[in-house]
Simulated scan of single mutants.
Amino acid sequence: MSSLQSLDRLSLNQITINRWSVREAAEGCARAGVPSIALWRDKVSAAGLAESRRIVDAHGLQVSSLCRGGMFPAATAAERQLRIDDNRRAVEEAAALGTDVLVLVCGPAPDRDIAGARSMVEEGIAKVADYAKSCGVKLGIEPLHPMYAAERSVVNTLKQANQIARQFPADQVGVIVDVFHVWWDPELYEEIRGAAGRILGFHVSDWIVPTPDMLLGRGMMGDGVIDIRSIRHAVEATGYQGPIEVEIFNQAIWNQPGDDVLATMQARYLEHV
């Protein structure tokens, strides 16, 4: 398999041009010929759910996913229930936006008990999965790099995500493969093969050396050390042919004109993905 020859599968993850509203992002994608967009709940909330759907439809865009659900662990049962309720709302939002993928960033431990927090993640997904299926939405567990374990997610490897996902039917729960989070893992290719039939999304960016910031340090494809194409080939070998989202958290990129970011993103996608 070689490089991608078209932009047919390219999706702009909205965070890549963070200052753009839903309308601005949709207009930008339409100008640039980017066919899909991944929306974030805060941006959707600002625009309004129905209006967000109207905007993306009016610009001929597909919604590749909604980010984010998850954040299940909490110190009390009451707090955990609130988070489950919020995930149910996120499922409803995903369905209303016309996407069948809700990305889960599973959340940190509320204390030092990381094993207990991982159990809370499993319990939370179990309480949402059937409802999600009834809405036509699948839950995509996104493992985050271990440096985020204390603040963002106790699910840190694709192996962990696979182990959780396999507790549920494949038409309910799967995984998201984000190269920024998993590129370093010596078990990565084995676990990608093991995720066959459950890969719900593929996200690309790059790992810059030296890393400028733990959160806002992702690079544009080709600016770092990740062998993105080999990971894509492995993902596609499982049968995944869905959208490829460019998801970049980087203040320097956020400061650039959005249309310039899109142009660079398209060129790097064709060259490095």
Rank of each mutant, 00 (worst) to 15 (best):
G239I: 02
A165K: 07
D85T: 04
S52K: 06
L270T: 06
P146I: 10
H145D: 13
A58P: 03
G224K: 12
L7R: 03
E24S: 13
G201S: 12
W40Y: 14
I248R: 12
F202I: 05
K133I: 00
A161F: 03
V44E: 14
S230E: 11
V154A: 04
V44T: 12
A38Y: 03
E245S: 15
V261G: 01
M1V: 08
N87L: 12
G194D: 09
L61K: 09
T211R: 15
W183C: 04
G194S: 07
R9E: 11
L200T: 09
L139K: 13
L158Q: 07
D86E: 06
V105C: 09
G194A: 10
R83Y: 04
E245A: 14
E191K: 05
G70I: 02
E123L: 07
L12Q: 04
A109Q: 05
K43A: 15
D113L: 13
C29R: 10
E79D: 14
I244N: 03
V173R: 11
E51K: 15
N162P: 05
A25K: 04
A170W: 00
D178T: 04
L188S: 03
H203E: 12
S6R: 00
D206M: 11
E151G: 01
I231R: 02
S11Y: 04
P212Y: 01
R41F: 06
G239A: 01
W184C: 11
A25H: 09
Q81M: 04
L102Q: 09
R218I: 03
S45Q: 15
P110F: 00
R53Y: 09
R53C: 09
A170R: 13
A132H: 10
N162Y: 07
I231K: 07
P212A: 01
V179C: 14
V273A: 15
D130E: 13
V105F: 00
V34R: 11
N18Q: 15
R41P: 04
E92W: 01
R68N: 13
R80I: 01
S21F: 13
D111Y: 10
Q5V: 09
R23C: 00
R112T: 14
A75Q: 06
L139C: 13
G124A: 11
I55D: 08
E151L: 07
R112G: 10
G242R: 10
S230A: 14
V175Q: 11
D85H: 02
A38S: 15
A237Q: 04
M220D: 12
D227M: 05
E24P: 01
S119G: 14
L262N: 01
R88L: 14
A196Y: 05
F202Q: 02
M71G: 10
L270H: 13
N162R: 14
A77F: 04
V261W: 00
I176L: 11
M147P: 01
E142I: 11
D130S: 12
A95K: 03
T99V: 08
G197K: 03
A149C: 08
T16S: 14
Q167G: 12
H181A: 06
V246E: 06
A96P: 05
P146E: 09
A132G: 12
V137K: 13
G98F: 02
Q251D: 15
L144E: 07
Q251V: 09
K43F: 14
